[in-house]
Design a protein around this nucleic acid. Structure first.
Lengths: 163, 163
DNA sequence: GGACCTATTTATAATTG
DNA sequence: TCAATTATAAATAGGTC
């Protein structure tokens, strides 16, 4: 009998959320959703997945650094916290996620539950896991960085000539 | 009255799919799902998101390269196809996805529909988009690569001392 | 900010063509 | 292999505390 407010979800358009508060809330929820989906993909299919998420820009503060510096600082901070402090306060700064099973097997054959370490914000990792993440990430990204200059393939007549 | 086979989805456990065929099908579907979710996150909240997905290993072929070489080759191939061939046959090799709006704004102020280019496998990009992706990715990854050696932060008494 | 709630939309497992 | 279908599980928008 009483009027009732509508709570269920509404359909959503693919467009930037203008309301600052809604945008932040949606970011938090969906970031977790993306990490979860990525982890499921990696675990269930054996794919190797790397994700980096930068949080949305916050409203400018009086003495905030420039945008390029900001990224560098975020990565620096991520590294320091990863290696030095058990990552307790990084939650809103940077999230990294990476699954490199083959690397893991080489580096640490006796680690159990390799499926689970990949997932989630890095503040939940311990030192060993974070170190391996860092190694794996650097290794992977080095390859990405070099892919342009080292290309020696040929593509002719609709076919690839590897080697 | 007739017997009917059940088609609807069943609940799923977080574990590797053993059946090769099911695994491949699930990979294709869920990879698209992850890219879609990541794009939604980026567009709706203004976050910047980078994703790399390596497909699951295929059954070993007689003369397949070693696992490390495989990655290098995949990146090489991705690059060659990105820059030289409009990316028509890359579908099962490598998918890259990246949203770097601030970079895009600098490099190409008159590009329309910046929200949409991020999404999807790179074989759907045109040359310009792929070039920008490459630049943005290299720039981003260079920063990631350097984050370890350039760290100059201090963490004391539960607080970060930036600068 | 986070944890929970509920109505709905969305993603997708299994199957068919 | 690839696109459609359908039943259902899962994600999530908006709300409350």
């Amino acid at each position: 009998m009483s009027t009732r407010l509508i709570k269920g979800r509404k359909s959503v358009h693919l467009a930037k959320i203008e309301n600052q508060n809604n945008r932040q809330v949606t970011f938090s929820k969906r970031r977790n959703g993306v990490f979860k989906k990525a982890n499921e993909l990696a675990v269930m299919t054996g794919a190797e997945v790397g994700i980096i998420v930068f949080p949305p820009e916050r409203p400018p503060s009086p003495s905030s650094p420039g945008i390029d510096d900001k990224y560098v600082q975020m990565f620096r901070k991520a590294n320091c916290m990863t290696l030095n402090t058990q990552l307790n306060t990084l939650k809103d700064q940077l999230y990294l996620s990476l699954n490199l099973k083959s690397k893991l097997k080489e580096k640490n054959k006796n680690l159990e539950s390799q499926q689970e370490w990949f997932r989630g914000p890095i503040e939940k990792m311990n030192y060993t896991e974070a170190s391996m993440l860092k190694e794996g990430l650097e290794d992977l990204l080095l390859k990405v960085k070099n892919y342009g200059t080292e290309c020696g393939f040929g593509y002719e007549n609709g076919k690839w000539k590897a080697e």
